[in-house]
Simulated assay, not measured.
Amino acid sequence: MTLEVTHLTGGYSQVNTIKDLNFTVPSGSLTALIGLNGSGKTTTINHVIGLMTAKSGTISFDGLDSQKEAIQYQNSLAYIPELPVIYDDLTLREHIQTTISAYHLDAQKAEQEAERLLTIFRLSDKQDWFPIDFSKGMRQKVMIVTAFLADKPLLVIDEPFIGLDPLAVADLIELLQEKKAAGKTILMSTHVIEEAEQFVDDFLLIDQGKIRVQGKLKDIFKAFPKQKNINEIYFRLAKEVEHE
């Protein structure tokens, strides 16, 4: 099951934030979108999950067109946003139950998997808590748990490591590797670059709405031979924008 983005151009109102993007994410792999703030990473993700309509180009997953077969396409994906979206009136337990109901999951199997995920992220003893009691990191963990619980073949993640402590980051990385091994297709944006090298299969460096470089981290550095680390690459990109 492959995510295919072909000649994707889109953005807000009359401005094309992303321009002629072309990439694929095969099953059992993870592609990471990287780049400066405002480069087009989140806009790309918003098009992939269907929050925005492309001005031109296509997006498909396992042959399902995101526009022509929108319902089937949407049913194939789970999404973790950068900013957690949870319900203030529902306890953590009720968030789990709502996810099971919304995705029509097998209750017994889903509850077992939920307990496993809650244990991994040290939330098992907080199932009767309301979101008002959660820290930012805990809210992010709730989003991660519910998205993984849905167990969809396409997983789209926007900056998942923000707000997580180092232990939770390690837990998430292990789960991502687990999902890859299970054949899931994963698209993720991140600023955690050097740590991501251990589990990311392909990096897409987006600059001003275009793919500047695609490949392994070593390929990114080959394209910028004078820069020694990712921060220096970002500084160079920022200076290029200033001089245009």
Rank of each mutant, 00 (worst) to 15 (best):
I34T: 03
I144D: 05
S56L: 09
I144P: 05
S101V: 06
A147E: 12
E174V: 07
L77F: 10
L187M: 03
E4P: 01
T91F: 08
A168P: 00
V192D: 11
S66P: 05
T17N: 15
K126F: 12
Q67G: 05
R93E: 14
Y73L: 02
L118R: 07
P84G: 10
L8S: 14
N46V: 02
V15W: 09
I162P: 00
K180C: 06
K68T: 12
K184V: 04
S135Y: 12
S29N: 11
I230H: 10
A107H: 10
L167A: 04
D89G: 12
T119Y: 09
G183D: 04
F199T: 04
E194T: 14
P225W: 14
V5L: 09
K216I: 01
E4G: 06
I132F: 14
L187G: 03
T58F: 04
S27R: 04
I220E: 06
A78V: 03
A110C: 05
V85S: 10
L205K: 03
L64I: 00
E242N: 02
Q74T: 04
S76K: 04
I230F: 15
K179Q: 14
V15S: 11
R122G: 08
G50N: 06
I233K: 05
M52Q: 15
L187K: 02
D202F: 03
I49T: 07
V241Y: 12
D128S: 07
I132A: 13
N37L: 01
S189K: 04
L172W: 01
V48E: 10
K210T: 15
A196V: 08
V85K: 11
K126Y: 14
E94L: 03
I96A: 00
P166N: 07
A196I: 07
L176I: 11
P153C: 10
Q140L: 00
D201C: 05
I34P: 01
E242K: 07
F161R: 03
P84D: 11
I45E: 06
F23P: 06
N16Q: 14
K55N: 15
Q214G: 13
G28S: 09
I162T: 15
E240R: 14
F148R: 04
K180S: 04
N16G: 07
E197K: 15
P160S: 08
Y12Q: 10
L92Q: 06
A182Y: 01
E82N: 05
L217D: 05
K141Q: 14
I100D: 00
K179C: 02
A147K: 01
L176E: 00
